[in-house]
Structures are given as structure tokens and as C-alpha cells.
């Protein structure tokens, strides 16, 4: 689905990503883990086209997308749940969802998709006309996910799903994501600090440290590995 080949990414004069390569497969949940400021968000912004890599290639289903403008990449089937939700606060939940179906193709299936996301998150139906900015954190995250699904993406990017959410709500939302992944067969690429929770729902994981990939493997194996435990889970053996 997604292949990233040795990208170098700068923000201003500072190099953030160093020869990063990874892949996200069809129908799988791929996780990118790493501490704060490791470059995770930069990587997602690069995939979605908001930042362009200086070197390297990004391919979606074999098509090179790293030089395409953001709106073209959306049309090609990449959708993002950005860090901090980034809803349109002064628009209703319904309007936020409508904007999720902005691309020409998505507009045709808009009504049907709205029904579908209301089915996934029934609470949003009761919040339909409410301004998105007045929702609780968990509800906002649901709107952000629902909005990203509206374009019927082939690849869903999720940045910091757990940010600012209570553990119980977090668990509910991560279960829902797993459900979406299974029922729709949607490829999901998720970036998280919360390593434990993410590896439980993911199929495959990469570890990013100071802008470099330092480890990868099956999610279950990563969960077991001493190295990951020590360095990223903060579960030191005493």
C-alpha cells in the first residue's frame, strides 16, 4: 500500500528525518512508535504532502506521491486524523463530516458515508448540529476519525490518537479503530507515544528515534522484546 524509501526531511534548516524507510501493508495496522520529538508527526506530514522530502521516495500503490500537492494525495486515497484533531471548531459536526467528503469522488457517496460513520459512532448523530469546538475531547477525536473516513480512503493516517483522552475513552476508540480495520480491510498507519496500547492493536511496528528507524518487527514480538521494553515502555527490570 505505502512504501517509503530513504527519505530525508528538513524543517527549515534542521534535518528531522534521516533516510527513513518503511512500509504499510494492505489491510494491516502499522504503528510508528517513538518518544516526543522523534520525528513522528513530521513523517505523517510528509506522507500527506504538507512537507516535501528533500531526498527519497514515497509510493502509494506503486504511484510516486512525494511531489504531489496535498489535495491530490487526498484524492489518491490518503486521509489523515491530525494531531490535536484539528476540527473546524466553528462548524457543526455535520459540516465537519461533509468537508471530509470534499473530493469529487467522495461527494457522490457522501450521504451513505454519513450513515456509515453515524453507525460507527452513534453518539455523533445526537451531536450533529453542535459546533465541533464545543464537544468533549473524546467526541472530537471521534469526529476527526469519522471525518477522515468520509473520503473512503485506502490508507488512514492517525497521529497521536491518545492525546488528551481518558484511558476508558481511549480504549473504546482504539477498539473501534481495530474494528474499522477488520470490517473495511482498511490500511491504517498510526503514530503514537503510547507504545503499549498501540502495539496491542497493531500488526507491525517501527521504532523511530532521533529521526532514524532503529527497530521494527511484528507488533507481538516488539511487545516481548527486552530492548523495546527497556527503552520505550519504561518498564525497567529492577
Amino acid at each position: 500500500m505505502l512504501e517509503i524509501e530513504q527519505i530525508d526531511v528538513y524543517r527549515g534548516d534542521i534535518q528531522i528525518l534521516w533516510s527513513v524507510s518503511l512500509a504499510a501493508e494492505d489491510g494491516k495496522i502499522t504503528a510508528l512508535l517513538g518518544s516526543n520529538a522523534a520525528g513522528k508527526t513530521t513523517l505523517l506530514m510528509t506522507i500527506s504532502g504538507l512537507i516535501k522530502p528533500l531526498r527519497g521516495r514515497i509510493r502509494l500503490e506503486g504511484h510516486q506521491i512525494d511531489k504531489q500537492p496535498v489535495h491530490k494525495i487526498v484524492e489518491l486515497g490518503v486521509s489523515m486524523v491530525p494531531e490535536g484533531r484539528r476540527l473546524f471548531p466553528e462548524m457543526s459536526v455535520f459540516e465537519n463530516l461533509e468537508l471530509g467528503a470534499f473530493t469529487r469522488k467522495a461527494r457522490e457517496t457522501k450521504d451513505q458515508m454519513i450513515e456509515e460513520v453515524f453507525g460507527i459512532f452513534p453518539i455523533l448523530k445526537t451531536r450533529k448540529v453542535q459546533m465541533a469546538g464545543t464537544l468533549s475531547g473524546g467526541e472530537q477525536q471521534m469526529v476527526a476519525i469519522a471525518r477522515a473516513l468520509m473520503s473512503q480512503p485506502k490508507l488512514l493516517l492517525i497521529d497521536e490518537l491518545s492525546l488528551g483522552l481518558a484511558p476508558l475513552i481511549m480504549q473504546h476508540i482504539s477498539e473501534t479503530i481495530k474494528q474499522i480495520n477488520i470490517t473495511k480491510g482498511l490500511a491504517i498507519f498510526i503514530v503514537e507515544q503510547n507504545v503499549f496500547m498501540t502495539l496491542e492493536m497493531a500488526d507491525y511496528g517501527y521504532i523511530l528515534e532521533n529521526g532514524r528507524i532503529v527497530g521494527e518487527g511484528e507488533a507481538k514480538k516488539l511487545l516481548q522484546s527486552e530492548e523495546v521494553k527497556n527503552a520505550y515502555l519504561g518498564i525497567e527490570e529492577v
Binding site: L50, P82, L87, F88, P89, M91, L99, A106, R147, S151
Partner: peptide, 14 residues
């Protein structure tokens, strides 16, 4: 209206 509230988020909607 969306891009007025959040330009990048609007961009990400396509």
C-alpha cells in the same frame, strides 16, 4: 470557511 479556521486541516480534506 474551513480553510479560514484551519488552513492545513482544510488542505487535508482535499
Amino acid at each position: 470557511r474551513a480553510t479560514a479556521q484551519d488552513r492545513d486541516a482544510g488542505n487535508l480534506m482535499g
